[in-house]
């Protein structure tokens, strides 16, 4: 099993992600630096959280134009599962691999706390180990997580089961439209989400609700 974590200048959740994948799968992910032009054969590719390029211009904007992104786009087109968490989600939208945009939190403050997520589609390759409608705990930590898409895009997302995670009632931390916390692309192999499932995978984290996301993604490709 091969997992790849892509690292940009300013990524800072890469080590959490690598630790989580290593503990869950028993395999240590390979890392790819943003200036590289190829992504080695992988069963799962992850863009971790952080503040690539200091969020200059727009969160994820500069990273989304990095040399590695052509290879990421090709990898996505081959159907390889890709997960972008937090800044990774911002980069995927900026790169056009996922629709919509992540704007400044509606409350204008950085939010770092735990929220509740509803599994709104348990039939994706990233959520199959959860129950439909299940409510899980998950930490968030971001300043620009306010998901926005126009009516036409929202309709497509909602009507095609592409909203995978929604902030459970009363826990939307950032003003995201329709309480959207995580979406997949049309093909279903690219997931972007603001919350950090890699930070809730073992007792030391006080729970393991995030673990099944990785088990879902890795189980399918094992």
């Amino acid at each position: 099993m091969k997992t790849t974590v892509i690292i940009f200048p300013g990524s800072n959740r890469d080590r959490d992600m690598i630790a989580a994948i290593t503990k869950i799968s028993g395999h240590t992910p390979q890392t790819v630096w943003h200036t590289e032009l190829e992504i080695p054969a992988s069963d799962l590719v992850i863009i971790p959280g952080g503040f690539s390029y200091g969020d200059y211009l727009r969160a994820g904007a500069i990273a989304a134009r990095s040399p590695i992104m052509d290879a990421l786009s090709k990898t996505a087109n081959r159907g390889v599962p890709i997960i972008g968490v937090c800044n990774g989600f911002q980069i995927l939208t900026e790169a056009g691999l996922l629709p919509g945009a992540l704007m400044r939190n509606a409350g204008l403050t950085f939010v770092c706390r735990e929220v509740k997520l509803e599994i709104t589609n348990a039939e994706t390759q990233f959520s199959s180990r959860y129950g439909q409608g299940e409510i899980i705990r998950c930490p968030v930590a971001h300043h620009d997580g306010n998901y926005y898409a126009d009516e036409a895009v929202l309709k497509k997302l909602e009507n095609n089961g592409r909203v995978v995670f929604r902030y459970a009632e009363g826990t939307n931390p950032n003003g995201s439209v329709n309480d959207i916390a995580g979406i997949i692309n049309e093909r279903g192999n690219v997931l972007g989400m603001m919350p950090h499932p890699e930070n809730l995978i073992e007792d030391a984290h006080t729970g393991d609700d995030g673990r099944r996301l990785f088990e879902s993604a890795l189980g399918l490709v094992a």
């Binding site: 211009l57 727009r58 904007a61 134009r65 939208t93 900026e94 629709p99 919509g100 945009a101 704007m103 926005y148 898409a149 126009d150």
Partner: peptide, 9 residues
């Protein structure tokens, strides 16, 4: 189109 604006928003 390429960088300075995000034409989604």
């Amino acid at each position: 189109e390429k960088l300075l604006s995000n034409t989604v928003i």
